[in-house]
């Protein structure tokens, strides 16, 4: 009989304790696991069914109307001597330092950053720019492929396009984005362009998945290097 008594004050153990458990291991596996599987499957299925399919341009899809001469403003970098023109109705200066400038699109849909450094290591500059993207906000960044025809101010360069997600600082929402990073070098100076915007589903209108792809063209193409 001694084994029937517990260690705390000698209270006897309950002779048979059914426990009254409603959610045992079997029900947890069946109901809980089943419900989890069904919910995940159904929501995933809905997401796949409504998934946007990129629509490549077939015809009649030339560039949108460009900037009229004379309406541009120009950012000039004193340290490295390069200039970046931009349409003030499309971009505004979001920040700048000694090496470059960040242009934010007026609708908040994206951003372009120009940054210069000494040397001619284009790949190194691209990697530095990629590493500089804050991982807390730029998540799931995956390489898409090279940026064909990359250039900065008519100087040929190299770069890579990426896809990813931009997670809001509060962490409650995420937006698919496109990111391009490319650099060009001339006379011992390397200029790196980092651009990102919400992802475009139109491959023609949004090169490399950037919805601001066309707006990106103007400041990049018409940037001028020191001495030009």
């Amino acid at each position: 009989m001694a084994s029937q008594y517990g260690p705390w004050g000698g209270y006897p153990a309950a002779p048979s304790f059914g426990g009254g458990q409603k959610v045992g291991r079997g029900r947890m596996l069946g109901v809980g696991g089943g419900a989890l599987a069904v919910i995940v499957f159904v929501i995933t299925l809905i997401a796949v069914l409504v998934r946007v399919v990129p629509t490549p341009c077939s015809r009649g899809c030339g560039p949108a109307g460009g900037l009229q001469v004379g309406t541009a403003q120009v950012y000039t970098n004193q340290k490295w001597g390069y200039s970046v023109p931009y349409d003030p109705s499309v971009f505004s200066i979001g920040g700048q330092n000694a090496d470059g400038v960040t242009l934010n699109s007026s609708d908040g849909n994206g951003s372009i950053q120009f940054s210069a450094t000494s040397g001619n290591n284009v790949n190194g500059a691209n990697q530095t720019a990629l590493n500089a993207l804050p991982s807390s906000q730029f998540q799931g960044v995956q390489q898409i492929g090279p940026v064909r025809g990359a250039e900065v101010g008519l100087v040929d360069g190299q770069g890579t396009a990426y896809s990813g997600q931009y997670v809001d600082s509060s962490g409650i929402s995420a937006t698919p984005i496109g990111v391009v990073i490319f650099s060009a070098t001339q006379n011992g100076v390397t200029i790196t362009v980092t651009a990102f915007s919400s992802a475009s589903n139109d491959n023609a209108d949004g090169p490399y998945g950037l919805s601001i792809g066309q707006e990106l063209d103007f400041p990049v193409t018409f940037a001028t290097w020191k001495g030009q």
């Binding site: 929501i43 997401a47 799931g140 896809s163 997600q165 409650i172 937006t175 992802a199």
Partner: peptide, 23 residues
């Protein structure tokens, strides 16, 4: 908030190459 906030990423086109990711 997770389902509504991340819905755009669920339905985004699949791009990139897959690999096991700690990220």
């Amino acid at each position: 908030t997770v389902l509504a906030g991340y819905w755009h990423t669920f339905t985004a086109p699949l791009v990139g190459e897959g690999a096991v990711s700690a990220d």
